[in-house]
Design a protein around this nucleic acid. Structure first.
Length: 742
DNA sequence: ATTGGCTGTCATATT
DNA sequence: TTAATATGACAGCCA
């Protein structure tokens, strides 16, 4: 047995190779540990490709004990672990849930928001959110949205009675969300995640079912994605989707942020802080590219090409598909339960969405004249904010509302997203080859790593490993081997013992060199067919290469003429017995060895010596017998070795694919998350504005946004407080996160 | 005639 | 030390 050291070394090597293959040069776990521990497991743990390393590592762990390295159980073990990890992975990506627990805000007669009551869990329905977002005017919205919310609430079983007053309960809820954002965002991640996964599954289904749809969303998704990418990974700030996948536009957009602080710092700014740097944008861009890759993969087009060849004008919309979005609505319940639906809506409404007013969109206008018209039309919310809060006060507004709202979001984006983005950078460079993409697509049916892996890799791989060597195992451990196939299979513990399933699996997998192998193996003739030839696993061990008896078989007088070597396989089969004999068999026959080569090779030492002792053999005969035994064992060893090697490669390949899938999934999830987040922010902003705009002082006059702001307290209360106060509090609260970042 | 894949064999290392 | 096994390298065969 190999030493632990060797295995560790090997494992590290393999790991490195694997990482390099997938282009991972990032400390994935740094990012994942908190939210996605499974990736590491996927890489290091369950992979059967690392069986050796795994085994030894595992032997140091409780789990690994008691499993023989060559035992089939080991494969099962790894399979189980892999599956388990995949299952675990399902809930690992903890995107802040889109489900928001909202608290109703009571508006007192004076019109100031003073008190609140916990009322319901509000799921931001994407559809409504979308409408809000996409609607011509964001600020004051149509009732459809509200209805959507109501339905959602009802579905959730948390229907809050309509609140008296101008504000609908949804609005109030959203307002409440605003100040409870940090709490809520952190709370419901699992739900969100789950919804996302469901979406993915749906998406995958969609992919499978209708390729046409893929094209459909390709456009929409592209736009949506473009928008997504405009979201600052750190702050979560959304940018207008204006830039059509044009890097130049992105870079241009950057400076714009520094432009009019007015809008940035307006009431909206808290939500959408304009702190991004060009770097972030580039990362987002890379993100986009990588995502596009993923999407392309899914869509099963030679996407990568298209993506990169896409004309700058409309690259994303045409080539880039956000597959996941559309299918989502299929799952109604989940949809309702979480904001996941947002994505769907986005895709559906992507055209409009692109025009959505986002905090900084106005700043982009000058830079992106072509798109400016659409922006202007949809800019209402932004403009509203600007109107509400004069520039000079915007900064304060940012501080006021910002700390509580944007920070949680920004934090999420900051920590998780940036890392993820770095991951995604890799995707760009990595590039999926079409073949892989297609394969992935096939396997993508059930996106969740679970089904994928369960479908084939671990089990098949592991089992395949054992396929060829049953013969060797039988030979070596042959105390019982002489008898039946069953005994062989059981003994298969040695090396690569296998069961018949192995063959099927391998064939099914289309393992490169295996099938031919089998065919050839079948031709192999053992002198003792009763023992070995009948056994499938043994059959493929023996190779009857006609060249075996070719010129090299000098010692054998019965060698067929060379001419026969070149004849067809049919003719070979005709002379099966003679021609199937290996060189050593011929030699043995020539030397009149009284027993079969199979025995010579496969008998355990004891029996072998016993056998030798029964006969009076010359030195030459003994020498030949030993050589035959040595060669025979080595032959099987070589076969095992090759099979192992191949299996390792295949496993690595599969692991790479799995990782790529995971990466794609994570990227999709990220996109979804960002989208949802952005929508929520927009919603909250607009509602904030709406609520604020409806507040009236004792004289029935609206409060000046420059002088007052809504302050959300942790206890659920909403206060209308002077800006100065709000600023102070905001700064106080902002410090912590910032320090933490640095 | 060349080439790549498959196989067997040898030498050697490891267990 | 011996036997078994693993593996790199090489050569032959074949399509």
């Amino acid at each position: 047995m190999l030493s632990l050291k060797k295995y560790l070394t090997e494992g590290l090597l393999q790991f490195t190779i694997l990482l390099s293959l997938i282009g991972v040069r990032v400390d994935v776990d740094t990012y994942l540990t908190s939210q996605l521990p499974p990736l590491r497991e996927i890489i290091l743990g369950p992979s059967s490709a690392y069986t050796q390393t795994q085994f030894h590592n595992l032997r140091n762990t409780l789990d690994g004990y008691g499993i023989h390295p060559k035992s089939i159980d080991l494969d099962n073990y790894f399979t189980a672990r892999r599956l388990l990890s995949q299952v675990r992975a399902l809930d690992r990506f903890q995107v802040p849930t889109t489900e928001v627990n909202a608290w109703l805000v009571h508006r007192d007669p004076e019109g100031s928001v003073s008190g609140t009551q916990p009322s319901s869990g509000l799921a931001l329905e994407s559809s409504s959110g979308l409408q809000d977002v996409t609607g011509p005017d964001n600020g004051v919205r149509e009732s459809e949205t509200e209805q959507g919310f109501s339905e959602d609430l009802e579905d959730l079983g948390a229907v809050a009675p309509p609140v008296s007053g101008d504000l609908t309960k949804e609005d109030i809820d959203l307002i409440d969300i605003l100040w409870r954002q940090d709490i809520d965002l952190g709370a419901g991640r699992e739900v969100f995640d789950y919804s996302h996964r469901q979406k993915e599954q749906d998406v995958d289904k969609e992919l499978r079912d209708g390729g046409e749809q893929a094209d459909t969303w390709a456009g929409e998704g592209a736009e949506a994605l473009a928008r997504d990418l405009l979201v600052d990974g750190e702050t979560g700030e959304s940018f207008p989707a204006q830039f059509p996948a044009n890097v130049a536009s992105i870079t241009e957009a950057v400076p714009s942020e520094s432009e009019p602080p007015a809008l940035q710092n307006s009431l909206l700014s808290p939500l959408l802080t304009g702190t991004e740097s060009p770097f972030d944008l580039e990362q987002q861009w890379q993100d986009l590219m990588s995502i596009m890759e993923m999407q392309a993969m899914e869509v099963n087009t030679s996407a990568s090409e298209i993506l990169y060849n896409a004309p700058p004008g409309d690259p994303l919309s045409t080539n880039y598909s956000l597959a996941p979005n559309t299918p989502i609505n299929q799952n109604v319940s989940l949809h309702q339960a979480s904001l996941g639906g947002c994505s769907q809506d986005f895709s559906l409404f992507s055209p409009e969405v692109e025009n959505l007013p986002v905090a900084n969109s106005s700043t982009l206008l000058p830079l992106v004249p072509s798109n400016s018209t659409s922006l202007n039309s949809t800019f209402s919310s932004t403009n509203l904010a600007g109107l509400f809060f004069p520039p000079q006060l915007n900064g304060t507004a940012n501080d006021t509302a910002g700390p509580e709202l944007p920070d949680p979001l920004g934090g999420l984006l900051d920590e998780a997203m940036l890392d993820e983005i770095s991951l995604m950078d890799l995707a760009i460079e990595e590039g999926f080859n079409p073949v892989q993409a297609s394969q992935l697509e096939e396997e993508f049916d059930s996106d969740s790593g679970l089904s994928l892996d369960s479908s084939h890799s671990p089990s098949s791989l592991s089992s395949s490993e054992g396929s060829s060597s049953s013969s060797s195992s039988s030979s070596s451990s042959s105390s019982a081997s002489s008898s039946a196939s069953s005994s062989f299979s059981e003994e298969g513990a040695v090396g690569y013992s296998s069961d018949s399933e192995t063959l099927d699996l391998e064939e099914a997998e289309g393992a490169v060199g295996y099938q031919p192998e089998y065919s050839k193996f079948c031709r192999m003739s053992y002198q003792d067919p009763s023992q070995l030839s009948c056994l499938p696993y043994l059959e493929h061990v023996g190779h009857n290469h006609t060249y075996n008896m070719a010129p090299s078989a000098l010692d054998s007088a019965d060698l067929p003429p060379p001419s026969t070597l070149k004849k067809g396989s049919k003719e070979k089969q005709a002379d099966f017995l003679d021609k199937q004999m290996s060189r050593d068999e011929h030699r043995a026959r020539a030397m009149k060895i009284p027993f079969t080569n199979d025995k010579i090779i496969n008998l355990p030492v004891e029996e072998f010596n016993e056998l030798l002792s029964k006969y009076q053999l010359s030195e030459a005969q003994l020498s030949l017998i030993r050589d035959i035994r040595r060669r025979g064992k080595n032959k099987m060893a070589a076969q095992n070795c090759r099979k192992r090697k191949l299996d390792t490669i295949l496993n690595l390949e599969r692991d790479v694919e799995d990782l790529q899938r995971d990466k794609a999934r994570l990227l999709r999830e990220k996109v979804e998350f960002l989208r949802s987040l952005r929508q929520m922010k927009q919603k909250v902003q607009s509602l904030y504005q709406e609520v604020f705009g409806r507040l009236r002082d004792e004289n029935g006059r609206p409060y000046s946004p420059s002088q007052y702001a809504l302050q959300y307290a942790g206890d659920g209360s909403v206060l209308l407080i002077p800006r100065t106060m709000a600023d102070q509090q905001a700064r106080r609260q902002e410090r912590k996160p910032k320090d933490r970042r640095k």
